[in-house]
């Protein structure tokens, strides 16, 4: 009886996809660490929203960021920031990707593996990237700089080239990663206990 209830509560197909997305996000961010703002977390956040929705919009990007930030701050930038600064930065970066996840969830209906749909996700990725960079640059100003409008202007000016990098990353990775993932989601039957045992019969 309990097993049946668990089966109803956990959508294994979604969970498997979430784990797959987390792996893509983690591997992409670590392997591309040498290139500023070139990353796969944005596409993973968007896909968690448009394919999985709900709590996965938070779970997937936050898990990716938690795992990779732990690695990056431990092995790469450990001496550059104080714990308080790191905490402040992560607050803005993690929430930025959660926002991207929620933006992705606005495309959840009628997921199809078509050029139009992938194009729409890419467009949403561009919007999400601009929002993310605006939000995190504000965070950088709020945490590190004295709160003056001149400094805010300076931070956004310095952010510009990195936003360009980030936009290029989105334009490249969102379609490249979305196409096979959406195809898998629509065509391949991953481990899906809900498919094997419909909710009605379980209840």
């Amino acid at each position: 009886m309990i097993e049946k209830k668990v089966k109803m509560l956990i959508d294994w197909r979604k969970l498997c996809m979430a784990i797959g997305l987390i792996m893509i996000g983690v591997l992409g961010r670590i392997l591309l660490l040498s290139y500023a703002n070139i990353e796969t977390v944005m596409v993973v956040a968007l896909l968690s929203g448009c394919l999985l929705g709900g709590i996965y919009c938070v779970f997937v990007p936050v898990t990716v960021m938690a795992l990779t930030d732990w690695y990056i701050y431990t092995y790469h930038y450990h001496s550059a920031f104080t714990p308080n600064t790191i905490l402040g930065i992560t607050l803005f970066t993690w929430s930025g990707f959660v926002i991207a996840g929620f933006l992705g969830s606005s495309l959840k209906r009628k997921v199809v593996c078509s050029p139009t749909y992938v194009g729409i996700i890419t467009g949403m990725g561009v919007i999400a990237t601009l929002i993310y960079d605006t939000w995190t640059a504000f965070g950088w100003w709020y945490i590190v700089y004295p709160h003056t409008t001149d400094n805010l202007r300076l931070v956004y000016t310095l952010q510009l080239p990195f936003t360009l990098y980030h936009l290029m990353s989105t334009i490249i990775f969102v379609p490249i990663i979305s196409i096979p993932i959406i195809y898998l989601w629509k065509h391949a039957h991953l481990i899906s206990m809900n498919d094997a045992e419909p909710v009605e019969s379980a209840a």
Partner: peptide, 10 residues
């Protein structure tokens, strides 16, 4: 073309 232009831009 969008992907290729992204790679070129990068």
């Amino acid at each position: 073309i969008v992907i290729m232009s992204g790679i070129g831009g990068l």
